[in-house]
Nucleic acid binder design. Structure first.
Length: 486
RNA sequence: GGCGACAUAGCCAAGUGGUAAGGCAGAGGACUGCAAAUCCUUUAUUCCCCGGUUCGAAUCCGGGUGUCGCCUCCA
């Protein structure tokens, strides 16, 4: 497998620290608000990375933190008159609602800053003791000039950055680029005891402490958005390597931005869409499909029209899976096999194309193209099926269904039943609601069938149009009417 | 000012040296009572522009233009 490593700016062959195991840390949200679509991209992408490693048979350990101690949380809590930790906890719960809707698997651990003060303090102590950090009036700063590798993640030197950066005037710092590991407490802020007095951790140290605790040094993959490269990951790397004397991360992966009208979606520009706002208008499977339809390092422009266009493509995939289920229900002895021969011939090639795409730096866009290839092959074979399917053909169709299921295990687009063997669509069936409603719809469809037999097209069309207005689509097939929701 | 990324059809989008995947939209056809769904065919002599390297470049090199991002909280 090839991964583009931000550290070297090249694709590299993936070699894990331990054979057959992958250790992944992804920067999770600072929980002072609901997540927006830009926050959702890394969630969905790295969840897909994780799923692909599982698919490939790796033992995966996946950690995603919550930053629940932070300036923004404190400010927000002040505005609302709430307790900062209580507020953060509330948004953690809300985070899970959105992530679950997007079919993002729970991490093996979701560590919180507030629950890792001893580890954070120990790490800072180590940095003070080995001379990488210094203490000024109850705060501790990391001294960037002491760390030779500073700048290697973001690809710039300290002198580059000095040139134009808005310089922090904090007179406590020995170098403007030095950053806080520990901030002395200000009145009214949450604070913890430390060797330097009451205070709280700086922004970057928590990820170092938690990643090192759960994954150890030199772990395999660290992920996040491009905007975390500097300063967050630069600093995280510097302090971690300075503390342990060992490499921190083998592969740094960074996803591109979601944009709106070609501009980065961000809170400060006010051009963001909350995940829950979008989910109120579009199905979650479509949002996930849309996020994966572009390579993760490219920017992805969001608007309703693009999402809708993607939706029509996704519908083709769903239709194909539906058709396959129908075919599999028609298995019968005594039929002469042969309708699925071509499909059988293609399946292995499609599977390896998919894996090849994912092996090449997690190219989900290409992989989705391969899924469309499977869709076309399946549909072509399904077209030849009559009233029944021979067991030999059914076997081939089952293989195709298994392939859809495999692909979905990786992409995570459709929710599945508890056994993971059946994909649940948001919009199957028709006639939802009460039993009575379902029976009424059955009755209407039946009456329409009788009208068609009598070539009473006016009545048949009126019933079909009427049902469509109620959100129930009728499609006529040689074997009778098929119903679905749009 | 420093650093970096990107520029492929009406739209979205893969493709890093061998002659332009895929999806949406459009056109034609098959199927259908009509639809829908599905299938087939078709839609970029060409990949922002100009030079160069090469038998051969969307792909490499140089220059230009444009867009975006990071350098400050941000996924």
């Amino acid at each position: 497998m090839e991964l583009f490593n931000t550290l070297t700016r090249r694709k590299e062959t993936f070699q894990p620290r331990e054979r057959g195991k992958v250790r992944i840390y992804v920067c999770g949200p600072t929980t002072y608000n609901y997540i927006h679509l830009g926050n959702a991209r890394p969630l969905v992408f790295f969840d897909t990375v994780r799923r692909y490693f599982i698919y490939r048979g790796y033992d995966v350990r996946y950690i995603q933190n919550f930053t629940d101690v932070d300036d923004k949380i404190i400010n927000r809590a002040l505005e609302e008159g709430a307790d900062p930790l209580e507020l953060a906890g509330r948004y953690i719960n809300e985070y899970f609602k959105d992530a679950d809707a997007l079919n993002v698997l729970r991490a093996d651990r979701h560590p919180k800053v507030s629950e890792h003060m001893p580890e954070i303090i120990a790490l800072i102590e180590a940095l003070v003791q080995n001379g990488s950090a210094y203490v000024v009036e109850g705060s501790v700063y990391f001294e960037v000039r002491k760390f030779a590798g500073y700048g290697k993640i973001s690809g710039r030197t300290l002198d580059d950055m000095r040139a134009g950066a808005r310089v922090d005037v904090d007179p406590c710092k020995r170098d403007p680029m030095d950053f806080a590991l520990w901030k002395a407490a200000k009145p009214g802020e949450p604070a913890w005891d430390s060797p330097w007095g009451k205070g709280r951790p700086g922004w970057h140290i928590e990820c170092s402490a938690m990643a090192l605790k759960y994954l150890g040094p030199d772990f395999d993959i660290h992920g996040g958005g491009f905007d975390l490269i500097f300063p967050h990951h630069e600093n995280e790397n510097a302090q971690s390597e300075a503390a342990t004397g060992k490499p921190f991360v083998r592969y740094w992966l960074h996803n591109g931005f979601i944009t709106v009208k070609e501009e980065k979606m961000s809170k400060s520009l006010g051009n963001f869409f909350l995940v829950r706002e979008i989910l109120a208008r579009f199905p979650p499977e479509l949002v996930r499909f849309f996020l994966l339809s572009t390579h993760y390092r490219s920017p992805l422009d969001f608007d309703d029209q693009k999402l809708s266009a993607a939706g029509r493509g996704l519908e083709r995939i769903k239709t194909s899976i539906r058709l396959l289920s129908e075919v599999l229900a028609k298995e019968a002895d005594g039929r002469v096999p042969g309708v699925a021969g071509d499909l059988n011939f293609r399946i292995d090639g499609i599977k390896s194309s998919f894996e090849k795409a994912m092996d090449d730096d997690l190219n989900t866009a290409l992989a989705i193209g391969v899924i469309f290839e499977l869709t076309r092959e399946v549909n072509t074979a399904v077209k030849r099926v009559g009233a029944a399917v021979a067991p030999q053909d059914a076997e081939i169709f089952r293989k195709a269904m298994d392939l859809f299921i495999n692909f979905n295990e990786v992409m995570g687009i459709f929710k599945t039943d508890s056994g993971g063997k059946k994909m649940l669509f948001d919009s199957t069936g028709g006639g939802e609601g009460s039993d009575t409603v379902a029976k009424l719809v059955d009755l209407i469809v039946e009456v329409r069938g009788e009208a068609r037999k009598k070539k009473d097209w006016a009545t048949a069309d009126r019933l079909r149009d009427g049902l469509r207005e109620l959100g129930i689509i009728i499609e006529d097939t040689p074997q009778g009417a098929r119903r679905k929701k749009p």
